[in-house]
Design a protein around this nucleic acid. Sequence first.
RNA 1: GGCCCCGUGGCUCAGCUGGAUAGAGCAACGGUUUCCUAAACCGUAGGUCAUCAGUUCAAAUCUGAUCGGGGUCACCA
Length: 567
Amino acid sequence: MEDDMDIKTTIVNSLSAVLADELNNTEIKNLLEVPKSSKLGDYAFPTFILAKSRHQAPQKIAQELVEQLDHEPYEKIEATGAYVNFFLNKGNFAEATLQTILTSGDQYGDSQVGQAGNVPIDMSSPNIAKPMSMGHLRSTVIGNALANIYKKIGYQPIKINYLGDWGTQFGKLIVGYHKWGSEAEIKEDPIGNLLKYYVHFHEAAEKDPELDDEGRAWFKKLEDGDPEATHLWEWFRGLSLAEFQKIYDRLGIEFDSFNGEAYYNDKMDPVVDELKAKNLLQESRGAQIVDLTDENLTPALIKRSDGATLYITRDLAAATDRYNKFHFAKSLYVVGSEQTEHFKQLKAVLKKMGDDWSDDIIHVPFGLITKDGKKLSTRKGNVVLLDKVLDEAVDLAKQQIAAKNPDLAHADQVAHQVGVGAVIFHDLKNDRLDSFDFSLGEVVRFEGETGPYVQYSNARAQSILRKAKREVNLDDVLNLADPNAWDTIKYLADFPAMVLRAANEYEPSVIAKYALRLAKTFNKYYANSKILVEDDQLNARLALVKATSQVLQQSLALLGVQAPDEM
RNA sequence: GGCCCCGUGGCUCAGCUGGAUAGAGCAACGGUUUCCUAAACCGUAGGUCAUCAGUUCAAAUCUGAUCGGGGUCACCA
């Protein structure tokens, strides 16, 4: 970043020296661009804007500027068409970039823009007694990546798993368990059997609507603190959590809090009271609502006509609680895009309550995953179980290792890293908002633009470093002049800017795409240039290999993907 | 119907605050291993950037309309 800024400033100053009468520094800076191909140069200045005032052809202006400019700080300056193209001094730039990266180590790209502000992140949020599907994966891995990215730029992320652990479904579950379940069955396969009772309940309730009343009655008991209901709830919740934990362990993701919906049960009354006190609550069709027509939103339903609370009531309590606890700089909600309206309502209600911090609540939506074009639904059996996908991916990775690298040490561990890495990376590489239809073949692919491709590139880099049998010496030559290496060096210098962009856009895919691009140029580099040759550039080449490996590892780490040294 | 998102080669997608001949990956076809792991690299073929109009010296990118797909529109979360 520093280097990038310095270079841009240098170029702006150069241009300013000959254009001071026509354009100021900011204008020049905004016009500067990076050519599509580095054959055209490293930075370009388009001259179209001067054509009018000078009454000259842009091509001619470009040529004139090249003649007037001071060429000294650059390798060369050329006029190509209407552009003035600047070529950086490659040796110097390589030296500075590699020096910065290798001395900063894992801190390369760190910044303090967050000023240690708290950033609670609402993420993952699976429902108790239901299996985790591919749908939950998105929220989980996006939230985790954003936590890593925000930490890197100086914030204090707080990962909150807002479990779906309350609601009428628990009454239904209890009824289902009483009618068809057994302790032994549940111990054998907790989630599988709880889900079975739940599905069974819904089937039975179709024919016998009285079951629904029974379910509601048991939920009422639960709310009233009935000992049996409470005991069963705690039991189901604990079992589910243990199952979830296995998946989180496989993914390598940890949380700072598991405060789910149940946690806010006793925190809703104060919010409702406050709404009442501020005259925001009104009755409509028997329900209590906050009118939001002035915000062009549908009314927020705070209490049902039977007096029960709703999703937004709990979320209001949760948001307030999080603010009181953390005084957050931002509060992120990594929740599907189908809930966009809900978060608009949430913010609008908080705003009406006078909570200005509602501006810092940010919904980070993501696109829907479908299966055969249809929305995933646990009840309808249209599910893609996350556990199964991970199994499949790890199995495939094992097969790949057996075929390609049979002598690999710790093969099982690497298979896990590669298989899981492929699944996570696949979910993060595209724009958050893109919806996609689930395809196992696509998710567990290891070739082309995939996580394993990046991992492989890093493993190759590590392999070269091992074979070098010497350390990179930062006091020795670093001014790598090989043209094949140039794109890699420039991309390496881009990393800090990419981290900031990913944070600003709440978009982990920025990092994923960056890692792919860096891996690709690096692969191209070492396919065309031999690294391990004894000459005066060996140290510089090894420095590049090391720096690349380091940045690839950092990028993967930000995404929550592991990077094996060998694969 | 109102509001929101999306529409780029057979498939999946990049294209940053508008700029130089629209880029990748997969699939297809051909090539590269006595050479640092062929999970790689190189090449060939494939696109009127949904359509129309507007703004601009310049539009895949900005504006409006049309068509097509998805989401959402109070007592689920």
